[in-house]
Each structure stands twice: as C-alpha cells, then as structure tokens.
Nucleic acid binder design. Structure first.
Lengths: 204, 204, 204, 204
DNA sequence: CATGAATGAGATTTCATTCAT
DNA sequence: GATGAATGAAATCTCATTCAT
C-alpha cells in the first residue's frame, strides 16, 4: 500500500537534472568563454557523465538553445512582473520609465552569461523561440495600447517592433560595455527620451 | 619613350591575391555559414592552395577580421560619400533622411555577407578597427553639429553614440530579416521619426 | 566466499593502455625511425584511435618522454638488482666487472629502441627524470664508497660523474654499433681497464 | 683580348655562397633551435632566395650534413695543428695534456652550434663522413704510437677507439653543461687521469 | 642563374557523440 | 539509467620543394 508516491518523480528528477546541466553550461561558458567550452567539460562541471548529459540533450545545439531559452525566460519573467503593474494610470513617461528599468534589470539577471550569449555567440540556426519573443512583444504592445491617445505612431505593431529593437540596442549598449567609457552612465538617461521622442514625434 | 611601364609587381599582386581570398571567404561564408567554413574550403574556392592562403593571412581569425574590415570599409565609403554632401542647408529632417538612405544603401552592399557578419559572429573576438568606427561616428556627429540649434539633446557625443546604436539596430531590422514579415516595408519609414523624435524630444 | 573479486578498473585499465601505447610507439619508432613516426601511426599500431591515444598522453612529446622514462626505468631495475648484490667483499676489479656486466645487460633490454633513443633524439628537449639519473648515480657511487681505500680519485661525486659518462660512452660503443667493425668484440674487455685505470691512477 | 679572367670564378663564387648559406644555417640554428629552423628562414638569413639555396644544396639534409661536416672539419683543423706538434719527446702525460687541451679548444670553436649539433639533433641518416672520423682517429693513434712503450693496452686500434669515445664523452660533459653545477670546473682535471689510467692500467 | 610565390602532403590535436558495461 | 573510454572525422597550420618568370 503505497501512499504518497513521492511527487512527479520522473519529471521532477528530469527538471532538476536539466537545470543542473544548464547551470554547469552557464558556469563553464562564463569561466572559459564559448570557444573553450565543450560538452565533456560541461558534464564534468555538472558532476555527471557525458553519457548522462546526452540523456537530457540530444546534442550540443540543443544544450545551447535550452540555455538561451532559460536565460531569456528568466529575463521575461522579471520584465512581465513589472509590465503587469503598469495600469495606464501613469503617464506615458512614467510607464516607460518603469518599463525601461524593468528591461535593464532583466538584462542584469546573469550579466556575464548575457554578454556571452549576446556577443560571443554564433547565432547560427538557433533563434530564440517565437513564444518568448511574442511575450516580450505583447508586454510592450500592452503598454502602448494603454496610451494609444498620446502616441503619434500610426501602427502599434510596427511601433512595438521598432521599440523592441531600439530598446535592445540601447540597453545592451548600457549593459554590455564595461564600466567607464562613454556608455553606461551617460547613455542610460537617453533611453527614455529616445523612446518618448519616437512615440510622440509629430507626423506629417 | 615609355611612360612608367615599369610594373608594380609585389604590392599589386599581393593586393589582388588578398582580395581574391577575401572574395572566396565571403562566398564560402555566405554559401555554408560560419560553422561549416574552413580554410581548405576557402583556399579551394579561391583557386589557390591552403599554403598560399597562409602566405597572405597568418591564421583563420586574421582572415575573418580582414573580411569584416573590408566589408565595413566599403560600407563606410558609400556612407561618407553621401554624408559629405550634407551641408546643413537642408532641414534636420531632410539631412537625416539622406543619411538614413545612405546607411541603408551601405548595408545593402553585400547583404548576405552582412547578415553572416552581423548574426553569426563572435563579435567579441573581432572588434572592427577603431578607425572605421570613429569615421562612422564623425560622419553622424558632423550632421548633428550642423543642426545644433534644433536639437534638444544636451551632449552631442552621447547623442551620436545613441543614434549610432539606434540606426544600426533599426537598419539591420530592415535589412537583415528575410522577405515577408513585419519589418522591411513598414519599419523603414519609422526610422526617420525615431531619429528626429529622439533629437528633438522636449527635455525637462 | 569471494576473495577480493572486486576489480581494479580505472588504474589497471589505464596502466595496461599506457603500456600498449608505449609498446606501439616503441615498435613504430624502431620500424620507421623518429622522423617518420607520427601519432596516427602509433595509435594504429596500438590498435586504438588517435583520440584514445590523446586520452592517455597530452601530446606527442609526453609520449616520447614517457617511453624514454619507461625504457630507462627498466634498465635501472636490471642494473640495481645487480648493484644491490655487490657487498664490497669482492675486489674493486670483480665488483666493477659485475657492474659493467649489469650495465651492458641493461643496455640490451631493447637494443633497437635504445639505439633510436640514444642516437636520434633531441636529448635537449627530453631530459630523463632526475630521479632515475640519481639512482644510477647512487648505485655507482655506492660501489665506490665500498672501495674508498683503493681509489685514488679525490672526490667521489666527481669520480661517479666521470665514471657515468665513461661507462655510458663505452657501453654504447659496444652496444649500439651494428655487427662487424671494431667495436663490439674488442671494446668490451677494455671497459674494465678503463674504469680501474681511472680509479686507481696515481695522482701527483 | 681578355686578360686575367678573374680567378676561379665558378668554384670561388660557389664556395663563398656555400659558406654564406652555412653561416646563415648556423646562425638560425643557434638563434632559434633546431625545431624552429627551416629552409626559408635560412635563405632569408643568408640574404638569398630559397630557390638559390636549392641551387647549392639538393635538400635540407644535405644542408645539415654540410654544416656538421664543416663544423667538425674546423674542429679537426684546430686539433691536428696541436697533435702535429707532439713529437714524442714529451711524456705520455704532457702529450695527452696537450691533446686534451686541443680537443677542448676544438669543442669551443662554435660552442652554441656545437651544443645544438650534439644535443638537439636527430642524427638520423647523417653520420659524419668517415674521412674526418679517420683523421681524428689517426691523430690520436699517432700519439699513442709515439708512446707505445709506456702503454699497456695490447691493441692500439682498440685503444684509440676507446680513447676517442671516452674523450668525447668527458669533454662534452665539460663543454656542454652550462656554467655552474658539478661538471665544468671539477670534471676537466679528471680527464687526464682517466686517459692515463686507462692507457697504463696494469693488465693481467 | 636568381627569385620567391605557390604548392599540398602531412602532422598534431580537438571534441561531439556513441555504446558496451 | 548512468558511465566514461573510445571513436575518428575534421580543422588548423607548417614547410621542404618546385618552377614560371
């Protein structure tokens, strides 16, 4: 008579393992850089055998993809939390200020890993899943909708797309470059004007 | 009486060879992607032996670096041509329209190569030479200076830096994405408003 | 009741493998000479893949070094066995006769390999480990000490050093040269007089 | 009407060239070590083209062989000069003292080159020419003959052979090891006792 | 004869992946 | 399922030698 057959044994063990492996991958990546990262090293760092690693990931690309996916998901979580609290009661300015803060915070989740993923990575064949992309998109678009009246941009989809690119570029400029130099300090306060400027620019 | 028939052997032959090799590199890169590009293939595609390739480039990285450098230099040439004709007589709007056109044109020099270079590359290991960067920077800054009066951004250096990032991100969005999708057609006309919006945004 | 059937997997397998590889290295070296020896050939001759070879030796030099070390260790073993039996009860003459016999025997362990190792090698890059050297030195010095009284050489360390060089040179002369020629037969009996002559030479 | 067609044009030019090349080879060898020496480098250092180098030497081995040969010949010249002055009027002791001095001097002709040639060299297929060997042999044997009466060694050929090996080993021990350490200072004065001891050892 | 660019076989080493235990 | 030794294709780079100019 078995009571409480533990809980979700297979799945759970699997999840934990997957995370252990991704943690190891992240660690090795950060410690040695992409060029010197290899599956054996990752397995070792995860405290398992390569064979086991291949039980959870069919190949190296899947591993990379999963790590990126997890990283972006974590960023998304942080970002959506903030975005959810934007109720349109605030001004366009204050709402986007919050959004940008959230995005910057999101980019600081695992900054070194983020840098590797952004800079050192052959993005070959490994696009971020469309679902994640879509949710980032939706979060931004949601805020835009709440301020439809104050925005001059004709098409909200296009505006969202443009904003997404702008924000990513500017935030990476702030986050990726080492401390010192032109960027970090002085670029940060320019992001909001750029966003608001674009959204409220007079259109002919 | 012979007019300089001499010949310019060394330099000339070398230049031609270097270009032949870079052309081959570009071809292979575009055809097979970075991951499947190797020096033997490049040499073969250039119609020379690996040995010869290594007579002109000390190693694979130097080859990639040189290709990027050549590509960016070509883009810069196109861009500077246009930028040079902007004399400040036009409006901020029309001048930046011209600048954006030039930049888009520059990004269409070798679009597939450009895509590989932008997307598949360990940017980290292969920074574009600072001279090229600086000249792009100067060209943009030059236009800003001519319109200093109509711009609300306090620091022109920072503004240039921000613009550079914004422009690169948006133009890539236009240029890099395959046909179809949101981008190309609809994003293009948004670049100018984004730029002008940022530069003329009211500051508190 | 099973008596320690356990198994000694890692170490044991590793040892065997290392020996298999060194055997193969030795074989290839003897068959083709150093210049024509390469890791692929060694792996093939060992009946393993190159990859496996590199699991046991980090690079080609380590392989050569290990082979030399093993060879010299085997020679040392043979030599020490004999040297251990020299108790000083015999005459200087008879003791060194035994020592020389032991040394010659030691040099005949794997004569062809020995020849390659002695003649074809960048000795400079591959010094024999100092421990081995020291033990050869000690064995000789031990015998000298037992006959301190009959030896005219003032410094035993120097004498040992000189003897080591002399013995190596003369024994190699006997062992290394192909059959026929002056050496083998007629040089052998000269080694003892040379040694004894040196040790007992009247000093001014 | 041509007078004085220069003198020995072909030969002379050839000789000079050969020496220039060997000098370059020696220089490169000493500067970079055997492993990093290659024909292109040698040609460059000689101030000629590789093509020209191959006009004078059919292949790399011939180059190495010639260099060794030249080096050994120079050593021989120095050595024979001294040996020629030994007229048997002196004692066995003093004559061999002179001989050893000459040999040491000979080994110091181009010490770094000598070291490379002795230690860093795969001697594969490249024995010193028998003529040179023979002349070294004859020089030593000549001295022995002059002291036939005071020597106990039965066969002079064998004695010469043995002496040659002993001397080479001991002198290299003195010459090759860097300053400091056991060797240089203290081994040098042991060479003569070793030689005399061998030659005058009482025989049963 | 001289030149030196071109050659290309070949050597070392890496690492994603498999599979017998 | 886990293990990790074994695999071997593949990649980078070197250098003795040739030969068209």
């Amino acid at each position: 008579m078995k009571l409480q057959p533990r809980k979700e044994p297979r799945q759970a063990r699997s999840r934990a393992m997957v995370d252990t492996i991704l943690d190891a991958m992240s660690r090795v990546l950060v410690e040695r850089g992409y060029a010197k990262t290899n599956t054996n090293l990752v397995a070792e760092s995860a405290g398992i055998s390569v064979g086991s690693l291949y039980q959870y990931f069919p190949n190296k690309d899947a591993l990379i993809f999963a790590l990126r996916e997890r990283h972006v998901t974590r960023m998304l979580a942080l970002f959506e939390d903030v975005a959810a609290h934007i109720d349109g009661a605030g001004s366009l300015n204050s709402d986007f200020e919050a959004l940008i803060d959230a995005l910057v915070a999101a980019h600081l989740v695992e900054p070194e890993l983020n840098r590797i993923l952004e800079e050192e990575f052959p993005a070959y064949n490994l696009p971020v899943s469309t679902e994640i992309r879509q949710r980032f998109f939706d979060a931004i678009r949601g805020v835009l909708e709440k301020h439809r009246g104050s925005i001059t941009t004709p098409d909200l989809d296009v505006a969202t797309f443009v904003l997404q690119r702008m924000l990513k570029a500017l935030i990476n400029a702030v986050v990726l470059t080492g401390p010192g130099g032109l960027s970090a300090g002085s670029v940060r306060p320019e992001i909001l004007p750029a966003v608001i400027g674009y959204l409220t620019a007079p259109r002919s």
